[in-house]
């Protein structure tokens, strides 16, 4: 069991998973998002190969209306 903090909310997963698998689980596959892992950008090209670890902090963002 690992706990990953996503956008400020703790989420638990039965085992270590890749970022790509997490994105799919969250229903975000194919959406234009950007992801920061523990303060560093995780490039989209690395989603499939980066395995999440217990205690990771993720920020997943989109563009919204703003001035």
């Amino acid at each position: 069991m690992i706990t990953v903090n996503i956008n400020g909310e703790p989420r638990q997963f039965p085992q270590a998973i890749s970022i790509a698998a997490l994105i799919e689980e969250m229903g975000l596959t194919g959406k234009r998002i950007a992801l920061e892992r523990n303060g560093e950008i995780a490039p989209r090209s690395t989603f499939a190969t980066q395995q999440l670890a217990d205690g990771d902090k993720l920020e997943i963002v989109v563009a919204v209306g703003g001035g």
Binding site: G8, E9, M26, L28, E59, V61, V62, V64, G66, G67
Partner: peptide
């Protein structure tokens, strides 16, 4: 046009 960057909604409204 300016846009803001915000956390994505993790809810159900896909």
């Amino acid at each position: 046009v300016t846009v803001a960057i915000r956390r994505t909604n993790l809810g159900q409204n896909a």
